[in-house]
Design a protein around this nucleic acid. Structure first.
Length: 139
RNA sequence: GCGGAAGGCCGGAUGGCCGCGGUCCUGGCAACGGGAUCGAGGAAAGUCCGGACUCCCAGAAGCAACGGUGCCGGGUAACGCCCGGGCGGGGCAACCCGACGGAAAGCGCCACAGAAAAGAAACCGCCUUGUCACCCGGUCGGGCAACCGAAACCAGUGGCGGGUAAGGGUGAAACGGUGGGGUAAGAGCCCACCGCGCGACUGGCAACAGAAGCGGCACGGCAAGCCCCACCGGGAGCAAUGCCAAAUAGGGAUCGCGCGCCGACCGGCAACGGAAGGCGGGGCCGCUUUUGCCCCAGCAGAUCCGGGUUGGCAGCUGUAGCCAUACGGGCAAUCGUAUGGUCAGAGGAAUGGUCAUCGAACCGGGGUAACCCGGGGAACAGAAUCCGGCUUACAGGCCUUCCGCGCAU
RNA sequence: GGCGAGUUGGCGGAGUGGUUACGCAGCGGAUUGCAAAUCCGUGUACGCGAGUUCGAUUCUCGCACUCGCCU
């Protein structure tokens, strides 16, 4: 309930600071178990090739876009897991610097079979669609 | 040509664009850039062995315990690995496979079935050299005969005693096999051949092989049951370990632990006090010996609990190296020498994405065939301290050598 | 990454070189007016593959899976 009213002003301030922020625009990687668990409690959007979770950090936390990747043993052996994570990293690299929200954590979860085999175009389209949904809910 | 055996190698290729990790150089006050170069495997896997390395347990020797290995010789830093040899087994062969010391040191086990499961014994059976009884026969005695009687002999039946292990359903396994002689019946009791055991001597470093001769046969299986013999082995693991910073605490509990004896000398009138040192005692590896250290009254130490941290640096990749080439020793594993090269080092973890061309398997169609057209799109699998092995997974392809069969010459 | 332990019916859980206990659950029956409880009966198992042995759930080796510990 506190989000909507205050969400407008931080957005504006971030656009005021835009020159600096946009030039940074780098995406940090999540590593801590704690971060993953916080994001896991937030919104999610499931697609055939992956699941996306997103969480907006509290204002007192640091800014910037952060993203994490995870593939459990269900995805397959080490080769399959690494391949799935690489493709997830690639779609995040191509998409998030432009579309990611400042101050948000994203987590992409690989899925068995599909993450490694679906056409790359479809993964990109699905990721954009998932971001539409998540951002829409967030505002 | 078909079918096999052994060894080795490869295991998608090239290019464009956009990215990732390390190192080096470089621009910039900084933020942030630019360039060069390197960047997964034969198994990187399982973690099954062996080491390097680090820390812990006082050092050494012996013994015990525990664990491992197990034909012999060699290779190696080492190995449970590799090479060569021996023996046994499989295959026509090339060749392959084998936890392959000891069961006449000991203990234990061998269910069910079976007479019996390990000192051999004797349930059925077979036999009757002993003895007793019976007797329809022969025989003997009597009688003309029917028949009566007898038990010395022959044959038979039964009991007792004895002999025997040829045969016996069983079982995974049954105490040499076959033939002949022999005997009351039988038996290595005797003989021939085969098997088995011991074995002078010969060859070999050895495992082992050959073998004169001897033994009448004694010795079942299981040691991946205990065990014996020989050899080897401390424990833990890079999340080991060391350093720095920050933060919190600056505490609690327990243990060593037995309040030894003598004592030159010093102080004191004395009681007594102090005291170097000596003896003794206690503690520190499971035990013993030996060496060493510590303690015997003061403070420090050790262990555990409680509390705090989840940051950084080192270890971290360059060597028992590895790779390539050449030469030499060796049957070989492998060793030596020379020259050249050096080959991922991350730290939640880098090799990717995409496009184009080419492309193996496989599928469909055509063709006698070589092959052509279309589709299709690459096995198992990803370094985490590092090496040497083993084991397991793996689409498909290539090379070398060899064996058998068929055809031709 | 390293180290260790374990796989026995649907579940829990003993055990041993010779046809695998026991409890709960399930099914059938008895009892009851109906149930519960109780009693009787009953089915179902040694993770997979090799080896040793006459014979393996047990002993040995390999593989698979599950669980735990260490920063």
């Amino acid at each position: 309930m506190m989000e909507p009213p205050q969400a407008a002003s931080p957005d504006q301030t971030s656009e005021v600071n835009a020159p600096a922020a946009v030039s940074v625009r780098s995406v940090e990687t999540l590593t801590k178990r704690q971060d993953f668990q916080r994001v896991a409690r937030a919104r999610r959007a499931a697609k055939p090739g992956f699941i996306v979770q997103m969480r907006r950090r509290a204002p007192e936390e640091a800014g910037g876009i952060r993203v994490g990747f995870t593939c459990s043993k269900k995805v397959g052996n080490a080769v399959a897991r690494n391949r799935a994570k690489r493709r997830l990293r690639e779609i995040a690299r191509l998409t998030l610097p432009e579309r990611g929200l400042d101050g948000a954590d994203y987590v992409l979860i690989g899925r068995r079979e599909t993450t490694a085999t679906l056409p790359f175009d479809q993964l990109l389209r699905d990721f954009n669609a998932a971001l539409d949904v998540l951002h829409g809910e967030a505002r």
